[in-house]
Design a protein around this nucleic acid. Structure first.
Lengths: 117, 117
DNA sequence: TCCTTAGTTCAAAAGTTATTGAACAATTGG
DNA sequence: CCAATTGTTCAATAACTTTTGAACTAAGGA
């Protein structure tokens, strides 16, 4: 199963903005950005929402072109499409992340401490 | 009647992103940005939506802190809260507007030519 | 005063998004 | 093979958002 992703030029500004305009999804994007290059699996985000709901939000992010998801075994490895976003919308992601960092009211991944290896 | 506006520090990133994630509102913001400092009245945007619907979208923009509306006579003078947005979310508005400028699919104000004075 | 212009409000309808639980696949380890 | 792990899909519901028309207010001009 190869998951559908938009090509770079199919990424639409209003859709990206609307997708980022949700605190749960913003938290996911911030976390991916903070671990740039390290693919995450969905379970990392379980403190943000239920498994089902996460599946929904992650699909939104992927369909908008914000993230890339690759099926590996029973996991999905999720990465931020930073290069594509930076190419298409220069400066946008950086300013969104910087703005989010300044807002203590936003949910963040990892507040509920994970049992880390 | 003084219309309600959030203070600068009440402006919320997810709300601003969600509000800008609508093509009609994005068109309004782009137009205001292109005419920086020149207050617009609502009728400027009548080629984007009906009068009633415009009232709704302009209220969303105002309530999010993106625009300021001042009642003058029977008109509302609408301006972009650029300083407030730039202070709160540096670079965000500029990158959104630049990104929008690169997308020919987005609606723009003034496509239907106005009978100008 | 009466009419027009500018925009709002209200209630209804339509459409969309978010959230949930139960059931389902697919991979991996024992 | 069996069970656990990882995540998806589906259908239902809840909750919002958008759009509309009709009725309204408020100011300004004739």
């Amino acid at each position: 199963m190869t998951l559908p992703h938009p090509t770079t030029d199919q990424i639409s500004l209003p859709i990206v903005l609307a997708v980022l305009g949700d605190p749960t999804r913003l938290a996911i994007v911030r976390y991916l950005a903070s671990k740039e290059g390290v693919p995450m699996n969905c379970s990392k985000f379980l403190d943000l929402a239920s498994k089902t709901n996460l599946s929904y939000h992650l699909a939104k992010l992927r369909e908008a072109g914000v993230t890339r998801a690759e099926a590996v075994g029973t996991s999905r490895l999720i990465t931020l499409r930073r290069d594509d976003l930076d190419n298409r919308f220069p400066g946008l992601l950086d300013s969104v992340i910087a703005a989010a960092d300044g807002d203590p009211a936003l949910p963040i991944v990892g507040t509920v401490p994970e049992i880390d290896a």
